[in-house]
Each structure stands twice: as C-alpha cells, then as structure tokens.
Write a protein that binds this DNA or RNA. Sequence first.
DNA 1: CTAAATAGGATAAAAATAGTCTTAATTATG
DNA 2: CATAATTAAGACTATTTTTATCCTATTTAG
Lengths: 131, 131
Amino acid sequence: MRITRETDYAIRCILYLSELPDKVAMAGEIAEAMKIPKSFLAKILQKLTRAKIVHSFRGVKGGVRLAKKPEDISLLDVINTIEGDVGMNICAVNEKACDQSKECSVHHIWIEIREAVENILKRYNFENLRK
Amino acid sequence: MRITRETDYAIRCILYLSELPDKVAMAGEIAEAMKIPKSFLAKILQKLTRAKIVHSFRGVKGGVRLAKKPEDISLLDVINTIEGDVGMNICAVNEKACDQSKECSVHHIWIEIREAVENILKRYNFENLRK
DNA sequence: CTAAATAGGATAAAAATAGTCTTAATTATG
DNA sequence: CATAATTAAGACTATTTTTATCCTATTTAG
Ligand code: SF4
Ligand code: SF4
C-alpha cells in the first residue's frame, strides 16, 4: 500500500524545480541534488514532460523547467502522472475488476478512502509545500 | 498504492465468518463461498490465527471460527495482520528508511494520510460492515 | 487405527519495481 | 558545417513482491 520509489523521485524532482522556477535544469543536476539515479530520472522526466508538468529543451544548454507555476501543480497531479489513479483496492479504480463489487459491503470503503486521500493530495501544491 | 489480493481475501474471509459467529468452518468451505484459492486461503488463515483474530481447530471436524466478536475486529486489524503498517510511503512507517525525512517538506503529508486512512479503517468493524 | 483437518515450510511462476543502456534526434556554439 | 551536449524512445535486465501450490507433520474425532 505504498507509492513507488519512482513516484517519490518524481515529487522530489518537482520540489527541486519549484525552487528555481525559471532555470532550465539538466537531469544530471537534479539527480545529484535530490539523490535520484540519473538514468532513472531521465525516464521520469519523460513522463512529466508528456504530462505537461515540465517543459523540456533538447540539445546543448537543454534541460527542463516547470511548465506551470508551482501553485498549479498538486501532489495528486504528480502521482497520477507516474502511477495512475490513487486507489487502495482495484475496485476503487475499476468497478469491473471485481465481479463481487455489486454485493460487496467493503467496496464503498475503498471509495471513501480513495476520496479522502485524493482530497489531501489535492490540497498540497508545490507552492504551499515550500518551506 | 494498493492493498494486495491476499489482504482482500483475508477481509472476505472474516466477512464470511462474521455471518456465522459460532460455526467452525473449514478452509475449503470459505474458499469456495468467497472465491479464494483454497491453498492460498490456508496460509492466510495461519496468519489470522497467529494474530488471534480467528481460532483454529485441527483434526476431523476441525476448521476455524472468529476468536472475537465481529464488532471487535476492525478492517485495520485485518490489514495490519496481513500486510503490516499502513503507510503510503516508507517514511510514514519507518523514519529511518529515508535519510532526507528531517528536511523533507513532503514527509509530514505521508504521516497525515496515514492517520486519515487508519482512522477510516478503524471506524469499520465486521459488525457494522454486515449489510 | 484411520481419515480429515490445520501448521509450517519449501518451492515456483508471474508481475511489478527499479533501474541501465543504446541509439536517435535536437540544438547552441565555435 | 562539425561537434559536443542534451533529451527522447525503447529495449533490456536484475531484484523484489505477489500470488500462489505442494509436501510433510501434527492433531483429533470416531
Ligand atoms: S473489496 Fe469487495 S468489490 Fe472490492 S475487490 Fe474486494 S471483494 Fe471485490
Ligand atoms: S517523502 Fe521525503 S522523507 Fe519521505 S521518502 Fe520521500 S524524500 Fe524521504
């Protein structure tokens, strides 16, 4: 019932970029500062780029910077980008995944938890997260 | 960020036993009723037995029944038994797991979520879960 | 004594996680 | 234009976790 290391790395990465909103930072620089394996971060940045959370520049003096203001990026956005929907059980994400969901008395609890977790994750953005 | 099938099976199993509080049910019977692979359920029942959530009887006419009243078994109890602490990130379970937890501005959010999830999971016991 | 049941442990297949590596495309600069 | 630096994309790999199964031992009602 955990987020993955990949997601934790993605969050750290956005945290770093939020401190330097206009700088174009290279993957290597972020990796070193936030202690993320460099080639793994490169793949994570690709996902964040496709999700339009960061904007990337190729070539010499390339790198990445945030594509939005820190306050417009929530923790939930980053988690959704890296690992998809937040659900504590398959049935909270896809009703059809379990054929018992209609009669199951536990099903609604997973929905309730999902909503509670998403609400917390939406409340935090990378502006109010800065110390 | 999901509970495992094993945990879902354990919950279904307690759900079944809660409907028959005094009956000594065999693993095979529970497995069939709740659509749980039988030999997997056998292992799950061992964990539930060690945790004193169910009481088991060996030999002919053996089986398991709840060791407590349904209202004294929470969803959290079952989850803790099968997969340990509920934490959305390692640092919410073990501070030492990440050396950045002191300076990390996200750390406290995982603690907040952990507490929110645990509170929901504590509210539901197998008495108030029965339809 | 025997058949039926759980206990415990070893084993195994499949999936997910956590990365690495290679090649291609892009681009600033000399 | 040539080159070096950088991301993009995808193949590949190692490790760990998940999801079981199977075998042997122990227990016990009849
Ligand atoms: S909680 Fe109920 S509906 Fe959801 S996966 Fe488990 S059995 Fe299916
Ligand atoms: S949230 Fe912060 S403290 Fe927790 S694991 Fe990630 S980096 Fe470490």
